[in-house]
Nucleic acid binder design. Structure first.
Length: 978
RNA sequence: GGGCGAGUGGUGGAAUCGGUAUACACGCAGGACUUAAAAUUCUGUGAAUUCAUUUUCAUGAGGGUUCGAGUCCCUCCUCGCCCACCA
């Protein structure tokens, strides 16, 4: 029998596809843009983990082609950056040479996997024809004031000898070499990404973006928007002031001191007035010399020095308080100065404790109570659960309540108020019944004391107090209907059904918390109700933030303020191998952009790529290149010698694929409209806060200047789960556990590699490689070949009914699974289908031999076998995953003249998917007791009858009378006896 | 410390709506083929119990809701990723 030999077959088809350009059909009416993160062509080549994402996009691309789409599926090289440069330094070759060499290797490796890349569209970020446009974008940003020069301290990696962006750090270490980064003041180019912060944040929730939650969340956290207030604090006896930023202006009355960061300009300004300036100066110098690591990890203890002789004034109560310098306040965030409220901020609390500073409470804890998630009414459903009603009373006893709040294990609470004159258990229960529609209230526990009660609720912007008693009431035992919207409206405000309104109960427990303060245990950082806060006393934290900010505005001493954790993008590197920044410095005109007609500013040849470490890149040594004319005034000018970071080229590459040969513009408008946005983008999750953020930023800028027509670059992004080594470690040269895809392809074939990587588990999950697993999928491919060899003469006109049905189910499942990136289950479904073909074949053999034994006539007829057209459908389903073997079968075995690419993706027949007969599951008290074959549309009555007739069932029901029966149509019946 | 996610056989995993837990695959065991091995193929394979039918127990631990829970709720434990003095 002919064996399936991947090595011969695969090469043959790869060549034919490439030659015919069959997948480059861009004439269809529907488009699909599938994008991979282009690789950095390193010297080590690919390992099996790299292509996982590429395989997935290729599967989807081929699937979309069969579905009648024009599919854009390009590939290119992100080749600027340190590794190539370091290699160049070591080996004294031009980085370009190393890159070119590596690209050849990478391309060959990718080609062996049978990807449908359109290599005519290949881009390379180091190609002057490409980086001309990277520079062009920079120039446009420069023109719009989004690229600016700055002298702020930046992260400097002493080993890489370059500045790094915030995004390039890992725990304060250089992400590339692990060296401790130091802060260094340097002139550098910065992109004003913070101007786009709000749009970058809000568009994450827009319809243009369908990304995985975790990635969206990561970006949100990275952007780190916070809303608060900024206000002035006057320095007593001086005209100077500091500005502080806080998100908790509601705690202002608890302020007992203020702090400035070591780099705050006030210190220099007030030098003369600071009595202990020497001590302060010493502290500042020490702080500057601290590494990031010391500031965070090692140096957990908060340090600081008081600026003696200086007092600042709390604008809310005109109190004079001390000012400190402490390095737990960051100079670059907010205003570099904060108010300190030890009672309500853990860091301030810690610092205050250490330095014996005052602690003053201004917010009393209160508890937010909302309904449990499961109680949120769903229009279709009855909410079924046990509910606890808590009504709070006496504040001196509520310590018990607070302590036990969580320990009781109640899952949710409804707050109810009782009318003043009706404080009794019965009143509570009656009211609960009436107002909520809940029935079967039981298990009433009184947890309150005897005195007055204080029930506090914020409802639709209004604060209400009610006198209440304190009870715990357990609701449940049977189904109840969640309240309707009308009911909510009718409520007095105390009720919060459906989780639609948040309520506060002022438990007046601050005394209890005060105890803790006195014991020195904790700060209360939650929201609550203001105490000791002058005119603001008694309102909630939320309300207080609004009101107190308004107060500041009215008194012209502060305003509402928004801050971001995200900082502007430090955009210059002091290295050779990057795009030159197209700027000329002129003594007269300052920084002048290189005129568009002179782009690209090509990287000049240098003798040494070695970084200088002086804050200039090696380009600074090429005097001929550096010295030029100012484009504005014609006078002497010097070229900018810094280069762009590695992330520049990749921030817009997806656009260039669409029109990669255009020398007149970055992209042709018509073509851009035709293809954008990217429909599917697959790549590593580690790019969530860097590349994906940068690309969105640049894209939005390009949108603003009219280059692109979409607000977001890509519609759907899915991250790839990593492939670990077989030993459970990371695949790495260091552990000598790297699996090279070339070896796998050589032994098992590209189809097996593709199929295995898609089969190994959920796509986004990290999973270890298993060579045994590859053998498994190869067996599957072999079996298809074998089945065909055995049965190619036996195809019937129409398939066995069971095969037909299973095939239609398979079409449905595979189609849906590809759309949803559940490749593993679509492959297992195809395995199930093939297994069934073998099973029917066994049945066929059996009947044959039986016929032989009886010496009867035997014809295959229409049973047991599959029709040619149905088998072909199966092959088409498999072809996106294992294109080579499918093309081989299609053209060589099934004798089609045209490629399988020309086929249409099969549709399933809804009628055929329905089962006529099912196995009715019969449960007794929820336990499986029997399965009975019945017609699929069996009625409830019939099902009951059949179920009760079953002997097995009767063993369990015995003489007990069934209390009720639960029937799920087409699935099961549950007999309840107890 | 904060955010997100996960925990199911010996292993990777399936069960997407609260309805038959362990699909599919690997591994393992036994049989066939072979001088032999590999390859291939067939059968079995959660645990306990039983000759067997069977029954009981099992989805990190413990509780809860439900006729019914891997799935929902609460508490706890473990692991992974991201961020981390952001006021």
């Amino acid at each position: 029998m002919e064996q399936y030999k991947p090595s011969k077959i695969e090469k043959k088809w790869q060549d034919k596809w490439e030659k015919s350009g069959i997948y480059k059909d861009y004439t269809k009416s529907k488009k699909f843009y599938a994008l991979d993160m282009f690789p950095y062509p390193s010297g080590t080549g690919l390992h099996v983990g790299h292509p996982k994402g590429y395989i997935a996009t290729d599967v989807v691309s081929r699937y979309k082609m069969l579905k009648g789409y024009s599919v854009l599926h390009p590939m290119g090289w992100d080749a600027f950056g340190l590794p190539a440069e370091n290699y160049a330094i070591e080996n004294k070759v031009h980085p370009k040479e190393a890159v070119d060499k590596n690209v050849v290797v990478f391309k060959k490796q990718l080609e062996r996997m049978g990807f449908t890349y359109d290599w005519d569209r290949e881009v390379n970020t180091t190609d002057p024809k490409y980086y001309k446009w990277t520079q062009w974008i920079f120039l446009k940003m420069f023109e719009k004031g989004l690229a600016y020069e700055s002298n702020e301290p930046v992260n400097w990696c002493p080993k890489c000898k370059t500045v790094l962006a915030n995004e390039d750090l890992e725990n304060g270490l250089c992400e590339r070499c692990g060296t401790q980064v130091v802060q260094r003041k340097m002139r550098q180019w910065v992109l004003k990404m913070t101007d786009y912060a709000d749009r970058l944040l809000y568009d994450l929730d827009s319809e243009d973006l369908d990304w995985e939650d975790s990635i969206v969340q990561q970006q949100k956290n990275w952007i780190g928007r916070s809303e608060g207030a900024q206000f002035d604090m006057k320095i007593a006896g001086s005209n100077e002031k500091i500005e502080v930023y806080t998100t908790r202006v509601d705690t202002s009355f608890g302020m007992t001191y203020a702090i400035v960061a070591p780099e705050h300009p006030l210190i220099e300004k007030m030098k003369d007035k600071i009595e202990n300036y020497k001590e302060v100066e010493k502290y500042i110098i020490a702080a500057q010399n601290k590494t990031e690591l010391e500031r965070t990890e090692l140096q957990k203890e908060k340090t600081g020095v008081e600026l003696k002789g200086i007092k600042v004034i709390n604008p809310f109560n005109n109190e004079k308080i001390s000012l400190f310098v402490a390095d737990y306040v960051l100079g670059h965030y907010g205003t570099g100065a904060v108010m300190a409220v030890p009672a309500h901020d853990e860091r301030d609390f810690e610092f205050a404790k250490k330095n014996n500073l005052d602690i003053k409470q201004s917010v009393a804890p209160s508890f937010m109570v909302t309904e449990g998630k499961d109680a949120v009414r769903d229009d279709k459903k009855t909410v079924k659960r046990k509910t606890v009603v808590v009504i709070i009373k006496h504040w001196k006893k509520n310590e018990i309540f607070c302590l036990n709040w969580e320990k009781f294990g109640w899952k949710s609470f409804i707050i109810g108020g009782v009318k003043d004159d009706e404080s009794s258990e019965n009143a509570v229960i009656r009211e609960v019944k009436e107002e909520s529609g809940y029935k079967d209230i039981k298990n009433v526990k009184k947890i309150g004391g005897e005195t007055h009660s204080s029930f506090y609720a914020e409802h639709k912007g209004e604060n209400r107090y009610a006198e209440t008693e304190c009870y715990v009431v357990e609701l449940g035992g049977s189904e109840h209907i969640a309240p309707k919207d009308e009911d909510v409206k009718n409520h007095r405000g105390e009720w919060v059904p459906g989780g639609e309104v948040c309520s506060y109960i002022n438990l007046n427990v601050h005394e209890w918390f005060c105890d803790i303060f006195e014991k020195g245990e904790t700060a209360f950082v939650g929201n609550g109700v203001l105490i000791n806060s002058g005119e603001f006393t008694g309102i909630t934290s939320e309300k207080a933030r609004e009101e107190m900010t308004k107060w500041l505005e009215k008194n012209k001493s502060g305003k509402k303020m928004v801050n971001y954790k995200m900082r502007d993008w430090v955009f210059s590197r002091q290295r050779y191998w990057g795009e030159p920044i197209p700027i000329i410095h002129c003594e007269k005109c300052g920084a002048v952009g290189v005129p568009e007609k002179d782009l690209p500013v090509e990287l000049p040849e240098v003798e040494s790529y070695e970084p200088t470490g002086t804050g200039e890149s090696p380009l600074a040594n090429i005097k001929d290149w550096v010295n030029t004319k100012c484009p504005k005034c014609g006078g002497p000018g010097k070229r900018e010698t810094n280069t762009m970071p590695q992330w520049a080229g990749s921030s817009w590459y997806y656009l260039r694929y669409i029109d990669n040969k255009n020398s007149k513009s970055l992209i042709d408008k018509k073509k851009e409209k035709e293809w954008m946005p990217v429909d599917l983008y697959v790549g590593g999750a580690e790019h969530a806060t860097r590349h994906l953020l940068y690309a969105r930023f640049w894209h939005k800028f390009l949108y603003d200047i009219g280059v692109v027509s979409t607000k977001e670059p890509c519609k759907r992004f899915i991250y790839v789960g990593l492939i670990g080594a077989e030993d459970g470690r990371k695949m790495s040269k260091r552990w000598n556990n790297v699996i090279n895809p070339d070896d796998v392809i050589k032994e098992f074939g590209a189809d097996s590699l593709r199929l295995y990587e898609m089969f190994m588990g959920p796509f986004t999950q990290n999973i270890a490689w298993s060579t045994e697993g590859v053998k498994g999928v190869r067996g599957f491919l072999n079996k298809i070949f074998r089945y065909l060899e055995l049965n190619i003469e036996n195809f019937q006109k129409r398939s066995d009914g069971r095969i037909e049905q299973l095939l239609n189910k398979t079409i449905k499942k595979v189609t849906e699974d590809i759309e949803n990136f559940r490749f593993n289950t679509s492959i297992s479904q195809m395995m199930i289908f093939l297994n069934f073909l073998f099973k029917t074949q066994e049945e066929l053999k059996k009947s044959k031999s039986e016929a032989d034994r009886k010496k009867g006539e035997f014809t295959i007829g229409q049973s047991f076998m599959i029709s040619k057209s149905d088998f072909e459908k199966f092959i088409i389903l498999l072809s996106p995953f294992a294109p080579h073997i499918c093309e081989e079968i299609w053209q060589e075995k099934l004798k089609h003249k045209e490629s399988i690419f020309k086929e249409k993706w099969p549709e399933y027949d809804k009628k055929l998917i329905k089962d006529e007969e099912i196995e009715l599951v019969v449960q007794v008290n929820g336990k499986l007791r029997d399965r009975i074959k019945v017609s699929a549309d069996i009625s409830e009555d019939e099902a009951k009858k059949v179920a009760l007739e079953s002997e097995k069932v009767n063993n369990f029901v015995k003489d007990k009378e069934p209390k009720k029966m639960i029937f799920v149509k087409g699935k099961l019946i549950n007999i309840v006896t107890s």
